[in-house]
Every structure is written in structure tokens, then in C-alpha cells.
């Protein structure tokens, strides 16, 4: 039986004027798997995530998300959490959640309420009054409360204090089900290592190492975090 590819990236390049952000990147992800996109800052992880989310167009190559070119119809089935703070400061937490629920048919309000409690957030709080860690948790709730086929998390632990990181990781683990795919980009590998089924290592916009996470561990006799340190030091 053929396994459906949730993500197909074929020889994708992305240029910004003279700067090449991605160069001939290809990867594939089957349904229900977790892919780690690893690399230091500036390696092209966020560019790749934006392309898959349909927020940016590749300069060359092809991307298929759930069999379609990224656009409004794939965005309805993909939950994307960018690295940056993308919440409206003038709204309250509950208003942000309500907006998300109205736009996305797969948003589960019960799950959102549970996650709010788990992440220690108050619905009536104004977004502008939240700390950086709290806003990162709220961004995550917006994505994890959806029953999306694919979740894209771009650097969810970056710039976050350790207790918030732990909460975020617990939130991801608690909501991850076998039927949905997850792509997580990070340079903080230790926090997320236990999630990965597959990993790709990026450097200067190119994939130089990719494979099954467990196979890589056995082949190298070290953890993914140790491979990461060895490759980038």
C-alpha cells in the first residue's frame, strides 16, 4: 500500500536578491510522522517553514502540501506557528482564540480551554500584558487546538525561559496524535529530541544530512543532540 506524502519538497531554492536562503532542498514526509528541521541560526530553517506554510513562494522547485500547491486550501489544513510574535497586542487571549476558532473549522474549543489551563494562561488577559514565554505558549495553543493534518512549528523554544520550554514541550507531547504530521524546526535539539521520527540538518540553505532519527543514532552511536553539536562545531 502506498503511503500518502503530506509534504513533498522537490529541489526548492529561495533567493532574496543576491542572497540565497535555500539551495536545492528536497524532502518528503509521510502522514503521522514527526520531522525535525535542525540547523543553526541563518541556515534556512524559517525560510523552509514559511514556504511550506504558503507564506512565501519558492524561486525554483516545487512544493506540494497534502497533494496541493500551498495556498488558501492547504492553509485550512496546516497549522503554522512562526518563530516571531504574531499575536495582535490589542486583543485579549480569548479574542485571539475566538478569531482562530472562527477561521478554522478544525479548531477544538474544548481542547483550547484545556490547553489554556495547562499552559497557565488567563482568557481575559490582554495579549500586550503577556510575557514573551506566555505569548509563545498562546501561539502554540492556537495551533495545537486545531485538528490539522500538518503542524509546522518554527523554533517554538527560541528565546523562551526553561519552565516555559518545558510547558511547551509537554503541550506538544500531550496533543500529538499518530494521525497528524509535525514538522519542528529548532536549534535547541535537546528539548525536542524525543519527538523526532526523522531529521534533516541544514547548513547555509542546503541539507547535508537527513534520515531516520533512530537509524542515525545507531549509526553514529550518539544522540541527535550530540550529532548536532558535532556537525556544527
Amino acid at each position: 500500500m502506498m503511503t500518502l506524502s503530506v509534504v513533498e519538497v522537490r529541489n526548492v531554492s529561495k533567493r532574496y536578491g543576491p542572497t540565497v536562503a535555500l539551495r536545492g532542498v528536497s524532502l518528503e514526509l509521510e502522514a503521522g510522522r514527526v520531522l525535525g528541521v535542525l540547523g543553526p541560526n541563518g541556515s534556512g530553517k524559517s525560510t523552509l517553514m514559511r514556504l511550506m506554510a504558503g507564506l512565501s513562494q519558492p524561486s525554483a522547485g516545487q512544493i506540494r502540501i497534502l497533494g496541493e500547491k500551498p495556498g488558501p486550501s492547504t492553509r485550512a489544513r496546516v497549522a503554522y506557528v512562526p518563530e516571531v510574535d504574531c499575536l495582535y497586542p490589542s486583543l485579549r487571549v480569548e479574542e485571539m482564540l475566538d478569531l482562530q476558532a472562527r477561521f478554522f473549522a478544525d479548531f477544538d474549543r474544548t481542547q483550547a480551554a484545556e490547553l489554556l489551563e495547562f499552559m497557565h494562561l488567563t482568557p481575559r488577559a490582554a495579549v500586550r500584558s503577556l510575557s514573551k514565554g506566555q505569548r509563545a505558549r498562546l501561539k502554540l495553543i492556537l495551533a495545537l487546538a486545531r485538528r490539522a493534518d500538518l503542524i509546522l512549528l518554527d523554533e517554538p523554544f527560541s528565546g523562551i525561559d526553561p519552565p516555559s520550554r518545558e510547558r511547551i514541550l509537554q503541550g506538544i507531547l500531550a496533543t500529538h496524535r499518530g494521525d497528524r504530521s509535525l514538522i519542528l524546526s529548532t536549534h535547541l535539539v535537546r528539548e525536542a529530541e524525543k519527538l523526532f521520527d526523522r531529521v534533516v540538518f541544514l547548513s547555509k540553505g542546503e541539507i547535508f544530512l537527513a534520515g531516520d532519527a533512530e537509524a542515525l543514532r545507531q549509526e553514529r552511536g550518539m544522540s541527535i543532540e550530540e550529532i548536532f553539536r558535532e556537525e556544527y562545531n
Binding site: G54, L55, V78, Y80, P82, Y88
Partner: peptide
């Protein structure tokens, strides 16, 4: 916030 806005269906 363009990230949120442009990720809507």
C-alpha cells in the same frame, strides 16, 4: 501579525 493573517485560509 502578517504571519497570522497570511496563514489564514
Amino acid at each position: 501579525t502578517a504571519y497570522w493573517l497570511l496563514s489564514l485560509p
